[in-house]
């Protein structure tokens, strides 16, 4: 089961800060709800884990992250994450190319192109929802990322953003996620704008 996603998220902060955050792998990874870097092997290899909770069931993925390329001139980073859930019943791979595009005026945007492949039980059960779920995960990621970039600035706004960033859930909550997927689906059905 493979899903390709291309997303653009506006960030209310300067491109230089965003680029700095993007290269700080542990910090960047923590923008992903439920994810953390557990070990740095060398400059480009890390170990990490992600926890997904769907109802009473929790799936924890352990995996390796490899930074394939950092292109400072274009503010572009390419990485591959590979993980297996701790029960050995599913595995996932994500190839991500993230670019920070400077919009001037202290603003920028995060452009993400990713390819997610899921095998095993996760694909059997979650296959139909995967695009929507990945969408939601990326949205939460972008919101956290944006908050962290803003927090790197000064003033009340930065403090508020830092507080928000600290509040983020410790794991991907599948039920809450499912709810936002359903809301998104009905909005698109009745002609409302999709939440992304």
């Amino acid at each position: 089961m493979q899903v390709k996603l291309e997303k653009v998220f506006p960030i209310d902060g300067p491109a230089s800060n965003a680029w700095k955050l993007l290269q700080d792998i542990p910090e960047m990874a923590s923008c992903m709800p439920g994810a953390e870097i557990t070990e740095q092997i060398d400059d480009s290899n890390y170990k990490g884990k992600v926890k997904v909770k769907i109802g009473p069931a929790t799936a924890a993925f352990n995996g390796d992250i490899e930074i394939k390329n950092i292109d400072p001139a274009n503010h572009q980073l390419t990485m591959v994450g590979k993980g297996t859930d701790t029960k050995g019943t599913s595995s996932a791979t994500m190839e991500l190319t993230a670019t920070i595009r400077d919009l001037g005026d202290g603003k920028c945007e995060l452009v993400g192109v990713s390819e997610v492949t899921v095998t095993g039980k996760m694909a059997s059960f979650g296959g139909r929802m995967m695009t929507q779920v990945s969408d939601q995960i990326l949205k939460q990621f972008a919101a956290n990322f944006s908050n962290k970039v803003i927090a790197m600035g000064d003033g009340a706004e930065a403090e508020a953003a830092a507080a928000k960033a600290a509040e983020q859930p410790k794991e991907v909550n599948g039920l809450a996620l499912a709810w936002s997927v359903i809301v998104g689906f009905f909005k698109s059905l009745f002609g409302g704008k999709s939440t992304t």
Binding site: M1, T117, T119, A123, S124, F125, G127
Partner: peptide, 13 residues
Amino acid sequence: YDEGGNILGNSFM
């Protein structure tokens, strides 16, 4: 089965 060989119809769901 999807193109990766994942079986997608294996429960009464």
